[in-house]
Write a protein that binds this DNA or RNA. Structure first.
Length: 557
DNA sequence: GCCGTTTTCGGCCCGACTGTTTTCAGTCG
């Protein structure tokens, strides 16, 4: 509702600072991991930075009545669709308001009509090119399916950088933006390069075979569509400005705004060209230099969300974040014993060559019939095969595991006797998403054999909300029983997500990264899991995957 | 609307590009 108020106020031409205050409040509410009712009942609403008198009262009003008068007032007479249209590229609030007020545009079809019949172009400060830009913006708006999952965007970014790596004048290159911060979905892909011949680099960029549309191309900036749908923006800067540019283009916006404010109060100025004191440029070549000039240690990109990282940096208490190389095991892999595509041996070899020390084969249990779940007998023969394979692939190790179903009464799908023979047991809810999920998970965690609860919310990024589950209770029980919660790294799950990981970590919960791979193709999703872990402020000691195979196999709760 | 090492009013991040204009408004990131 705060986001919608911001949209509506912006459209009405309200002061941008007020609009931004609402956007900030919306972001803060979205990031809040505590129950807002609880915060209110303890009288702490106004303790939340960014929530003042006004928004605090509105939150109270909403909690009491389920309504917000301000929201009703500012959205009166404005179509929801009109507010959505603010995200059309090339069409901002001023133009949209003008079209609304003087031409009666109240939706996408109206706008197309006034473009067609030429009346839009007759408005003040409108011309042929502007209208054409808006027309293209509409095309893109209708074509793009919204945000791209990180797991889809990362390989595209890598392909682009690979294609440009041969350009001789390129000195540095990196993904930037939300992709570099490892946000679970990204709006577009940003690539930054440092080099002397910007024009040539951009030209090579626009000539890549996968490019279907060139949206812009100049000496310092280019923008294209890959395969007709994914927007990639490329920027080229001077080597001396690369650090400041990378810092700037990585964002997040909220992080940068706060940093720039800080720079101001310290008598400096921060821009994408560097840190300045008066006319004098005092940093900019590397990101480390930029942060140092502001009196801060380097803040890893995954933390740059203005969720307390700047304050932590000032007080020198940034977490020592887990590194990709620290994660030496994948604790959730399916084989062709259930619904996976590849043999255990093939998975082991692929995992070994990707730098892992071990994987845990955790196929589905018998109740998951749709997934070819296995019973006690098949599991026994799988354990024998794993022993044979382990003799072949040493020092790599395959752990004997199972992804056991948590049944509708909270009991497990396989008997304790066989679970006792495994190296690791992970447990999942795969049925009855609305049926006492919390109680069932708690009961499963109370079983000392269960080391991990998989995908604790059950959400699918592209299409499903997740279970009816009380995460606070799950986290408390996980902490008290020593059960790890999974960071399921499958690209459409990423479950738990970043904010919940941070919250659970602060409660003393342990974590386990599992790719939930059903073939060798997705073992690389571990990188996505590490991204979520780092965004959740995790250290090496918070993850089971940083233990050795022996340590994992001998875990006791 | 929020907030305070410029502290209860008066600021609020910074710069580039585009297209429309004769000095700048709108949009974007």
């Amino acid at each position: 509702m705060f986001d919608r108020i911001a949209d509506a106020l912006e459209l009405k031409g309200e002061a941008i600072f007020r609009v931004n205050a609402y956007r900030r409040a919306a972001r803060i509410m979205r990031d809040l991991t505590e129950d807002v009712e609880q915060v209110r009942s303890e009288g702490r609403l106004l303790d939340i930075p960014g929530v003042g008198e006004g928004t605090g009262k509105k939150i109270e009003e909403y909690l009491n009545t389920g309504e917000m008068r301000k929201y009703a007032e500012v959205t009166r007479g404005i179509n929801e669709e009109l507010l959505d249209m603010l995200s059309i590229q090339g069409l901002g609030p001023k133009t949209l308001k003008l079209a609304h007020d003087s031409l009666g545009v109240n939706g996408l079809e109206d706008l197309k009509k006034v473009i067609e019949d030429g009346t839009l172009q007759e408005l003040p400060r409108m011309g042929v090119k502007k209208v054409e830009n808006i027309r293209r913006g509409i095309e893109l708006f209708e074509r793009s399916k919204g945000r791209i999952p990180l797991g889809v965007a990362l390989p595209i970014a890598e392909r682009v950088m690979e294609a440009l790596s041969g350009e001789r004048s390129v000195k540095h290159m990196s993904a930037a933006g939300s992709l570099r911060r490892m946000v679970e979905t990204v709006g577009d892909i940003d690539i930054l390069a440092a080099g002397s011949r910007g024009g040539e680099i951009i030209e090579a960029f626009t000539r890549m075979p996968s490019v279907t549309d060139v949206l812009a191309a100049g000496d310092t900036r280019g923008s294209v569509l890959i395969d007709g749908e994914t927007q990639v923006d490329m920027r080229v800067v001077k080597t001396s400005e690369y650090g400041a540019a990378l810092q700037y283009f990585t964002g997040s916006k909220a992080h940068n705004v706060k940093l720039r404010g800080m720079a101001g109060t310290m008598g400096m100025k921060l821009s994408e060209y560097g840190v300045f004191r008066g006319e004098k440029r005092i940093a900019g070549k590397t990101e480390e230099d930029v942060y140092r000039a502001l009196g801060l240690p380097f803040i890893p990109p995954e933390l740059r969300e203005d969720r307390g990282e700047i304050e932590a940096a000032q007080e020198n208490r940034l977490p020592d974040l887990v590194l990709f190389e620290d994660v030496v095991g994948d604790l959730h892999v399916h084989s062709n014993y259930s619904d996976g595509a590849d043999s255990i041996e093939k998975l082991a070899q692929a995992a070994a060559s990707s730098g892992l020390e071990y994987i845990a084969i955790c196929d589905h249990s018998k109740s998951a019939q749709y997934a070819g779940g296995i019973d006690e007998g098949v599991l026994r023969s799988q354990m024998e095969e794993i022993e044979r394979i382990n003799r072949k692939v040493r020092p790599f190790r395959v752990l004997k595991g199972i992804e056991v179903d948590i049944l509708k009464d909270g009991t497990l799908d396989l008997a304790d006797e066989i679970l006792d023979q495994l190296d690791i047991v992970v447990a999942s809810v795969h049925m009855g998403f609305r049926q006492n999920v919390t109680g069932r998970m708690v009961r499963a965690m109370e079983n000392p054999r269960v080391k991990v609860i998989c995908h604790p919310t059950g959400r699918l990024i592209s299409r499903r909300e997740g279970y009816d589950v009380d995460l606070d209770t799950v986290m408390e029980t996980a902490a008290s029983t020593g059960t790890a919660l999974e960071i399921n790294a499958y690209f459409d799950r990423l479950d738990l997500n970043d904010v919940n990981v941070k919250k659970a970590r602060d409660m003393g919960v342990l974590f386990s990264i599992g790719t939930d791979s059903h073939s060798v193709e997705t073992l690389w999703y571990r990188a996505l899991g590490v991204g979520v872990a780092r965004r959740g402020w995790l250290r090496k000691k918070d993850l089971l995957n940083c233990l050795s195979a022996d340590q994992v196999a001998s875990l006791r709760k």
